[in-house]
């Protein structure tokens, strides 16, 4: 094995290990849960900011309520449902995957899949150039040839 191949192999192994290590499940503290839920709720009095980001008093009040519910042992879904009950679906910053509006999650996947399929179809090993050219190109070619001084 050449040094290069060895280096490549080593790099691949280290990368895989690093990614595996990064992907391991992290313990989630109560504060983390509050932050995560707050990041998915929309601040009612702001321009699209999340409850986690907004410094407004309504947002702080909402964060406190989320913290209280987390301490009471409610699940993430229950806490979100409580706010949806008060403010409507609008309060969630992204539609849940399993709701009718969950289609928005599929759209990017579909777009990329479609585009990738299109692109892959076009990416083939270079073949010989086709013999026919369009009439416009033929005319251009002849003009160029005619314009060349011998």
């Amino acid at each position: 094995m050449t040094a290069r191949r060895l280096a490549l192999l080593g790099a691949a192994v280290v990368m895989a290990a690093a990614l595996a290590w990064a992907a391991r499940p992290q313990p989630v503290s109560a504060a983390d849960r509050v932050d995560r839920i707050a990041a998915e709720l929309r601040c009612p009095v702001c321009q699209g900011l999340s409850v986690a980001d907004s410094p407004s008093e309504t947002a702080r009040s909402m964060r406190a309520l989320v913290a209280q519910r987390v301490a009471e042992g409610r699940t993430d879904d229950e806490i979100r449902a409580e706010f949806v009950r008060s403010y409507g679906d609008w309060i969630l910053l992204s539609p849940p995957l399993l709701s009718p509006n969950g289609l928005v999650w599929l759209a990017p996947l579909a777009a990329i899949a479609f585009g990738a399929w299109l692109a892959w179809r076009r990416a083939r090993a270079p073949a010989l150039m086709p013999a026919e050219i369009s009439p416009a190109e033929r005319a251009e070619l002849e003009a160029l040839v005619a314009a060349d001084e011998p």
Partner: peptide, 13 residues
């Protein structure tokens, strides 16, 4: 005081 009742009713302002 903590605003939780207002949140329960869905008050904006």
């Amino acid at each position: 005081d903590d605003g939780h009742v207002a949140l329960g009713y869905g008050v904006f302002g």
